[in-house]
Amino acid sequence: MSSSTNTLAKKHIGVLGGGPWGVALAFAAARAGAEVTMHTRREPPHNDAVGVTTDYAVVAKAPLLVVAVPSTVVREVLRSLGDHLDGHHLLVHGIRGLSPDGLDTVSDLIREETPVRRCGALGGPVQATELVHGRPSAMVVGSRYPEVVAAVNEAFASPSLRVHGTHDIRGLEWASALVGCVAIGVGYAEQAGAGPGLLAALISTAVDECGKILTMAGAEERTMLGLGGYGDLLASIALEHRPEVVIGKALAKGKSIDDAVTDAKLRVEAISLIPRVIGFAKEHRVKAPTFDILGEILHGASPQALIPRLFA
């Protein structure tokens, strides 16, 4: 990255959120040659190319902003940040969940809480640890605005990170959120002793269901079949440290949700989302047996009773 001095001046990226995902995104951008400002109240690991601030006005100086805070606080963060934004900002979020109280996507919240139009969402199988250590992986950025896709590419793409673009931002946001839910099922099934064939069956039926749910949510079904949906879910088989997978495994061991969350060490958006997705599917008359079963898993149903149904 030594030849990038001439572009350094215009590549300034702001990252909001100092959790593992925020830090990973900041480091990845720094590695790709950008000047990075992080907005966080925590103390992130030191990196020469990353400045830290607690002032929204300072981070808003960057024309490209990436929001990586938990979905429970995203509305408040956007509202405060919004005071310092205008129409020229590009705002991208990396939140794998929908609004904490309903089924709005985070880009819906961006529209409500900020003056920004040119927004995007990150998704795909890439994990925080891979970004931090520069292990090869793939990311998806969804935006209706080609320049947002281009800017994210410029900010994050490196020999070890492929960034794919899709125009169906809504589809990507829903797919990411639903994959998080199904990944709990993947962890659960793995722990309960399901082999590759059964896992494949689970994933395939779940993807089919998710695709129909996406259509009902006003997104494109095929987005579920891409890297941000199917691809993300496939990767979860091998990602035994992925928080949703960890929770699924803990639940299969008969642990309570609270204990399972402690095991995962991270907030998992999917847990509160599953009942809302079940309600949404019911309202729109989509058959979603996998999600019904996920709901029962959360309520502590035993693997012996569920596994046969999971593959019915």
């Binding site: 215009k10 205008d86 129409g87 020229h88 590009l90 139009r117």
Partner: peptide, 9 residues
């Protein structure tokens, strides 16, 4: 400011 929407970075 509406002009910011047609401005680049």
């Amino acid at each position: 400011d509406p002009s910011t929407y047609v401005r680049d970075r």
